[in-house]
Design a protein around this nucleic acid. Structure first.
Lengths: 241, 241
DNA sequence: AGTCGACTCGAACACTGTGCGAGTGGCTTT
DNA sequence: AAAGCCACTCGCACAGTGTTCGAGTCGACT
């Protein structure tokens, strides 16, 4: 309780200096991310991580204060995978789209990040670097001051929100061990019962013809559609102000 | 592993029938949500929940299969707090705004939900009811088929994404035990170091004048700004198709 | 009176994050 | 060469976790 930010990871240099001490922050992070990617946060325990690195579990606490802190570092690592184009290379809409697409796929490559985003603000160096790039991009587009910040938050929110929904579906499929068609079949009686009680939803469901289509493609289309509307909205605002 | 959806909570009636058996699903849920609201998911353990209800910890397993399942139920409960206006009461933009605002505040009232949204798809009765209402609202606005679905996903994503960021800030403040100004002071040396390395970000920071302002109001404005852009984008699409 | 089924619960298992203090080995200083 | 220090590793122990199992209770029906 009442932890000073002065103790935060980002202010403390990684502990290592001379001859390779068989364990380093980077190494720990890499191993942790492998486990997280493969089995989600439930699969990551300090003891397991230790044995995976061929060392005692408690040795890790020399390099990292906490499990929480380890996760914070891992989140920033994922953010480091996101590419934000420089302004001027293309129009700003393309630049933002590249950023958004890249961020979406980074989050879906490492879905465990999504559940962590709401627990700590992301302040690591990679996050800051990304923020800097975004300011450049949006400044180039003509934004300044608070609207710039709001625009950036808007795009961020879209990516995070979309990835959240997609990750949920992804994880349900993974957990069930079936493919998507199999899950759909399992869920069928339930959604039909629900559809019977909710006529508007039922009506839409019958018309939309969502059944036969490739689900991944549907998700991709939905994300792109949303991003396009959002960029339209921002562009409209730019021309009016 | 490979759990059939047929076993899902939503297909199993709550276990209780005759004389009040001192424990019921509703009661358990209420108590669990109180703990979650007060201390987050880390504070919720089956044993604690049991003693809070004046019963043994393992008694809970008669009414609920899992801790996971309990959380799934709790999430749907929160979704039940979200009000979606009927179409026709007002213009669709207002209707959507009321829904979005209500959903945002529900998520921030129960921030632990946010971290769970990415782990299971939300299929509870309240979620379905909300989905039905949204279809009505957007049908009234002129959407059909896949675009309707995409529009709904877009708004959803915006709310979830924005709430994620806000919850992160909120939790950092709560954990530190300081008020926002205090946290800002703690972080100051760090962001200044970062600003020094990231000129574009630094430039923006100096111009935007974010320092003095009420942070909560800033977040509210940002959310409203984003929602407005997003509705503009959707409206534009409607007029063009 | 007897049986059944709904419901409760204590003991136990395997596992978690983490504090503590002891240990190790190489570099620097005397 | 001896002494000391310091980066680093790690085993033990503690308090707690989710969950299974089998035994137990108590009211309602036959």
């Amino acid at each position: 309780m009442t932890s000073k930010f002065a103790d935060s990871v980002w202010l403390r240099p990684p502990r290592t200096r001379n001859g390779q001490p068989t364990l380093s922050r980077e190494q720990i992070l890499r191993a942790a991310m492998e486990i997280l990617d493969a089995e989600g946060p439930a699969g990551l325990s300090m003891r397991r991580l230790g044995t995976k690195l061929g060392s005692g579990a408690t040795s890790l606490y020399w390099h990292v204060a906490n499990k929480d802190e380890l996760l914070e570092l891992a989140v920033d690592e994922v953010i480091g995978e996101i590419y934000v184009p420089e302004p001027g290379d293309t129009g700003w809409r393309v630049g933002v789209s590249v950023w958004a697409d890249g961020m979406r796929s980074a989050l879906l490559r490492h879905p465990w990040v999504i559940g962590l985003l709401g627990t700590h603000p992301t302040l690591g160096p990679n996050a800051m670097r990304m923020g800097d790039r975004i300011v450049q991009l949006l400044t180039g587009a003509g934004f300044t001051g608070m609207p710039l910040s709001h625009a950036s938050a808007l795009i961020n929110a879209h990516v995070i929100g979309a990835a959240t929904t997609e990750a949920a579906a992804q994880s349900a499929i993974k957990r069930s061990g079936l493919d998507l068609a199999g899950v759909a079949e399992q869920v069928k009686p339930y959604v039909e019962k629900m559809a019977a009680e909710h006529p508007a939803y039922d009506e839409w469901r019958r018309n939309a013809g969502v059944a036969g289509r490739d689900q991944q493609q549907l998700l991709d289309e939905g994300f792109a559609f949303g991003l396009e509307r959002l960029l339209d909205g921002l562009e409209l605002w730019l021309t009016k102000n």
